[in-house]
């Protein structure tokens, strides 16, 4: 009996720590993130006619469902910023950078992301920035690698 048990290989099973399923992000976020994968920024069109980036699923004040998305230029203006002089390993950039709230051209709302800059002195509220696309894009907010200074 003991010999038989010793001859049996130990029972093993692969285990992946994480969700073992995929899910849809819904009608709005799914289209926006797919747009990023394709190198395009999509804004939500509200019933009042304004454009919102990043698109929420529902209008912030009225609560109405967002139905229309349309492309806008991948550039905007810095509404607020802070300077990270010692980035952590989880930060989007591995050298000193700014977190920025960016209002896209002609839109309301603002998107949080990183801004690549060589020094704090290069960053100021109201400055123009544009999207720097990630070389490989998968349909995630990190398809925007970061923003960069937009010299006109």
């Amino acid at each position: 009996m003991t010999d038989t048990l010793n001859e049996l290989p130990p029972l093993t099973q692969d285990f992946e720590l994480g969700f073992t399923y995929t899910r849809s992000l819904g009608p709005v976020l799914s289209r926006f993130l797919t747009g990023l994968r394709d190198g395009q920024v999509l804004a939500a069109r509200t019933r009042a006619g304004t454009l919102l980036v990043p698109p929420p699923e529902f209008e912030p004040v009225s609560g109405a469902s967002i139905k229309e998305l349309e492309p806008v230029a991948a550039e905007g203006t810095v509404l607020s910023w802070c300077w990270v002089s010692q980035p952590s390993s989880s930060a989007p950039l591995n050298k000193p950078f700014a977190w920025v709230l960016v209002r896209f051209e002609g839109c309301d709302g603002a998107m949080l992301h990183a801004l690549a800059a060589d020094a704090k002195e290069q960053v100021h509220t109201g400055m123009r920035v544009r999207v720097r696309w990630a070389p490989e894009r998968v349909g995630n907010v990190k398809d925007i690698a970061c923003f960069e200074v937009h010299k006109q």
């Binding site: 802070c82 952590s88 977190w99 949080l112 509220t125 907010v141 990190k142």
Partner: peptide, 24 residues
């Protein structure tokens, strides 16, 4: 989890954006 968390912005950085907005 879609627009913010993947970027891992820490709590101090987000507060710093608010402080800048207050100062501005």
């Amino acid at each position: 989890p879609y627009y913010l968390q993947p970027l891992c912005p820490d709590s101090v950085s987000l507060a710093a954006l608010q402080a800048r907005a207050m100062l501005d």
